[in-house]
């Protein structure tokens, strides 16, 4: 488990760092070496996909998705437990469904043979990867639902999830 989180973090981190270096290198090369880096835009887009979908299960695991938690204080423990089970259960289903539709889309993209424009990199494998990571995210919420049903880690009001929305 720990190893898997480390791996996902590392992949997402490398993708993000690469995006940063690539943008910088692109600007630098255009300004001082007179030419843009071929494929900078499309590589950025692929890095985005990798970064987002590897970080997604991590965000779920860390409880960083924004929820409306005002009622936490008011609800009795028992109800809170069912509410948690239900919401994580539903979220499991939604991410599972998302994984399925993205999988189907990846199949179709493969069939079309879609590539990026300059480097002609196949797009379908990246969508398949996104689909797999959505399955992982669904699994995370499944585990959370199961734990909630057993009364484990119910939300406290002073939850310190880093909500870095705006």
């Amino acid at each position: 488990m720990k190893r898997l989180t480390t791996l996902f973090t590392a992949v997402a981190a490398i993708a993000l760092f690469a995006m940063m270096l690539l943008t910088f290198a692109d600007v630098f090369s255009r300004k001082f070496l007179t030419n843009s880096i071929t494929g900078a835009v499309e590589l950025t887009e692929l890095f985005m996909l990798v970064m987002i979908f590897f970080a997604l299960p991590l965000a779920s695991m860390a409880g960083e998705h924004i929820v409306f938690d005002l009622l936490d204080k008011a609800l009795p423990r028992m109800l809170l437990r069912w509410q948690q089970t239900l919401s994580h259960g539903l979220t499991t289903a939604i991410f599972g469904g998302a994984a399925w539709v993205v999988w189907e889309r990846a199949q179709r993209t493969a069939e079309y043979g879609d590539t990026t424009s300059a480097l002609e990199i196949k797009i379908a494998p990246f969508q398949t990867l996104a689909s797999v990571m959505l399955v992982v995210t669904a699994l995370v919420h499944g585990v959370l639902a199961w734990r909630a049903a057993r009364g484990a880690d119910l939300p406290q009001h002073d939850e310190t999830a880093a909500r870095e929305a705006s």
Binding site: D114, T115, S117, E120
Partner: peptide
């Protein structure tokens, strides 16, 4: 535009 999805 056909060219917006290269490869297709």
């Amino acid at each position: 535009v056909h060219g917006y999805t290269p490869g297709r």
